[in-house]
């Protein structure tokens, strides 16, 4: 699916001085790809390939067939971070969630799974429930923004799929997170209901 966007992405990446790649500095870890932007498989793979320059013809301003690939779009990093043992969505994430909700409304064929995560401290099952609350909190906000509930699913990875593998407060903070994953992105699985 993402392959369709490759030429534009390549152009964009080159024009932007490979800014897309610099964003792959976030620890990769052994997590499932949460969003294409973060795992960087499509953009970084393309940028290093030899055929890259071919389609760069007259693109002055970057144009994206998919706004989610645009590093300056609020759709680019669709993650909400949480305080220790908390699951309330802070106000600063509302513009990003509004943009994602609008994107959902303009793409009625898409579904979303919100994946909740926690840091490594404490019981695995309690953390699973805590991650679920985080994912559910994000789903609730998107529902209030008009996205129909059946197109949203909140699931939890608890502390089982940490993106940051260390034991520092910074690692913990990175893992207290809920990610929005669209049904056309890697990491999305259509679940039996």
């Amino acid at each position: 699916m993402n392959r369709l966007f490759l030429p534009t992405l390549i152009a964009a990446a080159l024009t932007l001085g490979l800014s897309a790649c610099s964003s792959t500095g976030t620890p990769k870890a052994e997590v499932q790809p949460a969003t294409p932007a973060k795992t960087g498989t499509a953009p970084s793979g393309a940028a290093t390939s030899g055929a890259a320059g071919q389609n760069v013809t007259g693109t002055q301003t970057p144009s994206y067939t998919d706004e989610r690939m645009n590093p300056s779009s609020p759709l680019y990093h669709p993650s909400v971070y949480f305080a220790f043992d908390r699951y309330n969505v802070e106000d600063k994430y509302r513009p990003m969630l509004q943009a994602n909700s609008n994107f959902m409304l303009s793409h009625p064929d898409l579904k979303v799974v919100v994946q909740g995560n926690t840091d490594a401290r404490g019981s695995r099952e309690y953390n699973l429930a805590l991650g679920q609350r985080r994912a559910e909190a994000v789903v609730k906000v998107m529902e209030l923004m008009g996205v129909p509930g059946p197109r949203l699913e909140a699931v939890s990875f608890g502390k089982e799929k940490p993106r940051a593998l260390g034991d520092t407060e910074k690692d913990y903070a990175e893992n207290r997170r809920a990610d929005i994953v669209y049904s056309d992105q890697p990491g999305y699985t259509e679940h039996l209901q």
Binding site: Q32, V113, Q115, L128, V155, S156, F157, G158, E160, K161, G187, Y188, T189, H191
Partner: peptide, 9 residues
Amino acid sequence: YVSFETNKP
């Protein structure tokens, strides 16, 4: 047991 093989528990 709980398995995450389908990307959710």
